[in-house]
Computed example of a mutant assay.
Amino acid sequence: MNTEHILDAVHAKLAESDHPNPDAAMIADLIRHEAGVISDRDVFALLQKLRHDSTGVGILEGLCSLEGITDVVVNGVDQIYFDRGQGMEKAQLSFDSEEHIRALATRLAVACGRRLDDAQPFADGKLRRPDGSSIRVHALLDPPSDSGPLLSLRMLRSAATNLEQLTQRGTMPEEVSVFLSAMVAARKSFVVVGGTGSGKTTMLSALLAKADPRERIICIEDTAELSPAHPHVVNLVSVGANAEGRGEITLAHLLRQALRMRPDRIVVGEIRGAEIVDLLAALNTGHEGGAGTIHANSLSEVPARMEALATLGGMSREALHTQLTAAVEVIIGMRRTATGRIVSQIGLVRSDPVTIEVIWDARTSGSQGLAIAERWQR
């Protein structure tokens, strides 16, 4: 039985059909007509493959529905891995061929409003799910990949998580939750730092939900992930250049536009380049309570990391330290552990030159510095 030939013929018949939403029985009849003598089991297998080829995330659908799943990655035809909090696990699944992976990656990219082909061999976007969650999709074709088409899926469920739920899950103790709530209420500018998958975006979204409902929050991201439970949030998403190298809209461009949109709080989902210069400038011109995330493994690495990013925007080390001291007050460190994601440290920004004073550390549980929240509450 030539499976691909049968499926191609069925696809063609469905395209010519007057029925916009053919049911399973109709499709099964088409399969039997094209295949001739075929068992019910084979018909079901072809129906399942048709569904995988046209809806959801294909054969990865079951993995994406697992409890606690955060990531699914495809490294090859039979190299599918997933993460549900205990590190990468190998899935007992496989694609038919590299062309099958490429077809799925292309379909997902198009569903995200992105282009993926030989002229644009990588794509990054967000796919909305019927259950209200979203999946961040990243695809990379061959070339430049030397391992065939690669696909990475990240489950995004931050919209359904608030600070109270994070506290109940053990992300932080109650005293830290109280401190962070007071920080947001006092309109202190803050940055959430941590490694990949440490929960930075989830924490940022939960904290923004604590902002006064009368405030206007403008979130600027490369891929829309922030969905805080707040009544007045505007999301701006960067746009990559087209095949002709035109039409690019960067985070820095969006930051400048945000300043003209009457923001109460300006938030950058992930600070990763020259936009740090515009963000610090915005936070130093009366826009209190701004926030963002940045990749750093510990609080002590933050000054050096920001120095490197500021250099991309033409800002000197001295200017960065001056701007940072005036713009950002609190640094929140996130860490991924074997049992989940936790707040690992909280620090305050000190100057000349910039250093981070750790006022709370999960390893020592020292909380003397959290008393500063009492002054903010007053």
Rank of each mutant, 00 (worst) to 15 (best):
A45F: 06
F44Y: 13
A274W: 01
F82M: 10
V237G: 05
V72P: 01
E244W: 03
R363P: 00
L116K: 02
S344Y: 00
V358N: 08
S65H: 14
R246M: 08
P231S: 09
R335L: 08
K90C: 07
V277T: 14
V192T: 06
G245W: 14
A28P: 00
G247E: 11
E164Q: 10
L324Y: 12
R102L: 12
T70C: 02
E301P: 00
E248T: 03
K90Y: 06
V277E: 09
T325D: 13
W376N: 04
G58M: 08
A25Y: 04
P213W: 09
V184R: 05
G199N: 03
M155A: 09
A229W: 03
E374G: 12
A241C: 04
R154K: 08
R317G: 14
H5C: 10
D29N: 07
Q257N: 15
P130V: 12
G56R: 11
L207V: 01
R114Y: 08
M261T: 11
Q345R: 02
L180C: 01
E221Q: 06
V37W: 03
L127S: 13
I31C: 04
R51K: 15
V268A: 15
A338K: 10
T250Y: 02
G289A: 11
L279V: 02
H11Q: 13
R262C: 12
I356C: 09
P22H: 10
L30F: 12
T364R: 05
A211V: 11
E99V: 06
A224R: 04
V193Y: 01
H11A: 12
G68H: 15
V302N: 06
D29V: 01
L370C: 07
A252K: 08
F95M: 11
A291W: 00
R129K: 13
F122A: 12
L283P: 01
C112N: 04
N235F: 00
P20K: 12
E67R: 12
H33V: 13
L60Y: 14
M203W: 03
I346Y: 13
L60D: 15
T223N: 11
K210H: 11
I271V: 15
L208G: 06
T355K: 04
K13R: 15
V191L: 15
K126W: 12
R214I: 07
G347E: 06
T201W: 10
L166Y: 04
L30S: 10
P149E: 07
M88G: 05
V234A: 10
L299A: 15
T339Y: 11
L141R: 03
I294Y: 13
L7E: 10
P130Y: 15
L63I: 05
R115F: 04
E318P: 00
E61A: 14
S189K: 01
R246C: 04
T3M: 07
R341K: 05
I294G: 07
Q377N: 07
D96I: 03
Y81D: 02
T106H: 05
A160W: 09
